[in-house]
Simulated assay, not measured.
Amino acid sequence: MENLPGFAFLVLKDTLEKKGVLEQIKAKLRAEVFNALDDPNEQRPALSHENFLINELIREYLEFNKYKYTASVLTAECGQPEVPLDREFLVKELNIVEAPNTRSVPLLYGVIAQLLHANDEKFPRASSLQFSKWTLSKAANQRNQMGS
């Protein structure tokens, strides 16, 4: 009977891991620790226009993949506004031409796919083009499931 508390802990830990909750708890704890340690009086360096746009692309990617605690730490740490930039603004600002199959995924997926495709034209590699198509279709399916 004296091992019961340890056994109960292991069962609880295993249950939380199987449900995928343990990693969320760890991420939430890290985000809360960061927020507690973050000094609001500490001056952050001004964000360059490029860094601001890059942070927005990363935030969109993180939120799409449900890395919400990572996204919240990014936002707090770099000083991005709480409200994300409008996607259409990013598209225009970055001169991105979106294909119909990339509108349902983060812009970063489309940028990477375009870069991989451009590299294929210079240095043919069948695997990278297949990877980009697979990634875009997988990401589009994930976004469609989120909307359901």
Rank of each mutant, 00 (worst) to 15 (best):
M1T: 01
E2H: 02
N3W: 02
G6D: 14
F7E: 14
A8M: 11
L10A: 12
V11I: 03
L12I: 12
D14L: 14
L16G: 00
E17K: 15
E17M: 15
K18W: 06
K18H: 08
K19R: 01
V21C: 04
L22F: 07
E23R: 13
Q24F: 01
K26Y: 10
K26F: 08
A27W: 03
K28E: 08
L29G: 12
R30Y: 04
R30C: 05
A31W: 01
E32H: 11
E32R: 06
V33R: 10
F34K: 08
A36I: 12
D39K: 09
D39S: 02
N41M: 04
N41V: 10
N41A: 05
E42T: 13
E42F: 10
L47G: 10
L47W: 02
S48Q: 06
N51W: 07
N51Q: 03
L53K: 04
L53A: 01
L53M: 00
I54R: 04
N55P: 02
N55V: 03
N55C: 02
N55A: 00
E60R: 06
E60Q: 02
Y61D: 08
L62A: 05
F64W: 00
F64E: 07
Y67E: 01
K68P: 05
Y69I: 04
T70G: 11
T70P: 02
S72K: 05
L74Q: 01
T75R: 04
G79D: 07
Q80S: 07
Q80C: 08
P81R: 12
P81N: 08
V83I: 06
V83C: 06
F89W: 09
F89P: 12
V91D: 03
V91H: 12
V91K: 02
V91A: 00
K92N: 09
K92L: 02
E93S: 13
L94T: 04
I96F: 13
V97K: 03
V97R: 07
A99D: 10
A99G: 03
T102W: 07
R103C: 01
R103I: 03
R103L: 14
S104I: 09
S104F: 14
V105E: 06
P106L: 07
P106Q: 00
P106M: 13
L107E: 03
Y109N: 13
G110Y: 00
G110I: 05
G110C: 00
V111T: 00
V111A: 03
A113E: 11
A113Y: 12
Q114H: 09
A118C: 07
A118I: 11
K122Y: 00
K122D: 11
F123K: 14
F123I: 11
Q130S: 15
F131W: 13
K133A: 09
L136E: 09
L136K: 14
S137Q: 11
A140G: 03
Q142W: 04
N144A: 08
Q145I: 08
M146V: 01
M146A: 11
G147E: 15
S148W: 09
